[in-house]
Design a protein around this nucleic acid. Structure first.
Length: 471
RNA sequence: UCCUCAGUAGCUCAAUGGCAGAGCGUGCGGCUGUUAACCGCAAUGUUGUUGGUUCGAGUCCAACCUGAGGAGCCA
């Protein structure tokens, strides 16, 4: 029995009718495409959107997506009848519809998961969409970003968001299962943790305040109450950065651990990162396939990770520089002991390894004020960055924190920070100070790397960058 | 803030200083296995803005606007 609502003021949407259609739909065996393999041979119903349409004479291929996957509906004119066939054959891309039919396994069927299709028996069109702007062809960045609200429906963007959700879940599970307390840190803060130049300013009643760029200092207070904690939320940087690695708003997870030194911190980081990557590999194989990600590179991400000192890293970069014939690269790679690494340095260094690499013991001068001095080498601090392979660069910055109140006070004065704002922070060292460490991992940079994509903006559903805060 | 590149049809791009073009998408028709299908027909333009050079500017010059990705900074 066919149920085609035809004609109704062609190509216009009537809400009352739309909702009536929805209620009257036979919901027998309503499934998600994600689970289509469990329903081979059954008559099922799916609800979703038309991703693409290929007419082929008496045969019609409808690529259908429902948010959980993508599958192929096959309509055969003699079976569905002329009326429904004609209606389906002229649907616009992204039309919304409800389709019922029998699931069949077929090697030729594309989709996520691939290899299954639905022999269409019935269909109801909720809306015939006209003029959907994003075609299954090449588009430019500006056009796609202007249409971000629609671009999210495209299969690669869909896959990235699903990988992101899994990575987020894996992060939470990792810390929750290891005795960390999830605790929230403020987003509105009175001053910068590490200087004021890169913060978004907001009005706070009659005062000025800033959007937080880190929750770390608060977490140092939290660990003295709870032992091991992590915060996980949005963070804000007003840096005028226009690169494929920067967002103005991004998510960061920041664990902080009492009674933890730099060695133990690195051990935690490598276990953490390899666990998270493993979860993405296990749970998002289909999505990584959509992204055409080389998963063998991800399978190498197994602890332990190589650990090299800043001193050694400088020597390695200098050796790479000496070996190259490319004059541009030679200039970019110029570095002396005491300089911070720029992205060209990090990129070349990470090319030497097949998994993330730790660089520890940076010069005190290029790092934040709160890092513990290296014993016997005050010009070096107990900091560690974790650099992702394949040119993806820094995904984690961490350190052992200063535990001596006098040393900390001296550092605050040396950096000319407003001392009054840091009294509570110094207090943490006055009342039961212990060695402690922590790190921050950028969610979007991690997702960019795991997905193997070009640009960080694709890892945020609605990215905020230097030149864009819409849609 | 600095450097480099770009802006032409809905989209992606061509066009020696000399008639504004193609592919895709869209509409109509054809095709029983399409995977960004294929074949035929049709419609589609304030060449980012302003000024200048020239008989003539999409093209050359100047300024501006918008965007891109790289530096710095950083997750």
């Amino acid at each position: 029995m066919l149920s085609v609502f035809h004609p109704y003021s062609a190509r216009s949407l009537l809400y009352s009718r739309l909702h009536r259609n929805l209620r009257e739909t036979t919901m027998t065996n309503l499934i998600t495409i994600e689970r289509i393999a469990d329903h081979v041979g059954q008559r099922v119903t799916i609800r979703g959107w038309l991703y693409d349409l290929t007419p082929k004479g008496k045969l019609l291929f409808l690529r259908l997506r429902d948010g959980t996957g993508l599958t192929q509906g096959v309509a055969y004119r003699p079976e569905v009848g002329d009326e429904l066939f004609e209606r389906l054959a002229h649907l616009g891309q992204e039309s919304s519809l409800i389709v019922s039919g029998t699931v069949k396994a077929n090697d030729r069927a594309p989709g996520v998961p691939r290899g299954y299709e639905i022999a269409v028996e019935e269909a109801e069109v909720l809306q015939d969409a006209v003029g959907y702007p994003i075609t299954p062809k090449e588009h430019g960045v500006e056009f796609l970003m202007d249409n971000r609200h629609l671009w999210l429906r495209s299969s690669k963007q869909w896959a990235i968001m699903r990988v992101r959700a899994t990575i987020k879940r894996a992060i939470i599970d990792f810390f929750d299962s290891r005795g960390f307390l999830n605790i929230d840190t403020p987003i509105i803060t009175p001053s910068a943790a590490e200087g004021t130049s890169t913060l978004f300013e907001v009005g706070y009643f009659d005062d000025k305040a800033y959007l937080a760029q880190t929750g770390q200092l608060y977490n140092e207070a939290n660990i003295m109450a709870f032992g091991k904690v992590y915060c996980f939320g949005p963070t804000f940087r007003a840096e005028k950065s226009k690169t494929r690695r920067h967002l103005a708003e991004f998510w960061m997870v920041e664990p902080e651990i009492a009674f933890c030194d730099l060695e133990q911190l690195m051990a935690l980081e490598e276990e953490f990162v390899s666990t998270v990557v493993g979860r993405a590999l296990d749970e998002r194989a289909n999505e990584l396939a959509v992204l055409e990600r080389d998963v063998t590179a991800l399978r190498n991400v197994v602890a332990p990770f190589p650990r090299i000192s800043y001193d050694e890293a400088v020597q390695r970069v200098q050796a790479i520089r000496d070996a190259t014939d490319d004059p541009e690269l030679k200039e970019q790679l110029a570095i002396e002991w005491g300089d911070d690494f720029g992205s060209p340095h990090e990129t070349e260094l990470t090319k030497q390894f097949d998994r993330p690499v730790f660089v520890y013991g940076y010069p005190t001068a290029v790092k934040a004020f709160y890092m513990e001095p290296w014993p016997g080498r005050p010009e070096v601090c107990k900091s560690v960055d974790l650099l992702a392979p394949e040119g993806y660069g820094e995904i984690i910055g961490g350190s052992e924190r200063m535990s001596d109140p006098e040393v900390l006070l001296a550092a605050i004065r040396r950096h000319e920070l407003p001392e009054a704002n840091y009294q509570w922070y110094i207090d943490l060292r006055r009342y039961g100070s212990v060695p402690h460490s922590g790190f921050g991992l950028g969610l979007e940079r991690t997702v960019t790397w795991v997905c193997g994509i070009e640009h960080i903006r694709q890892t945020s559903p609605f990215p905020r960058t230097l030149n864009r805060m819409t849609p």
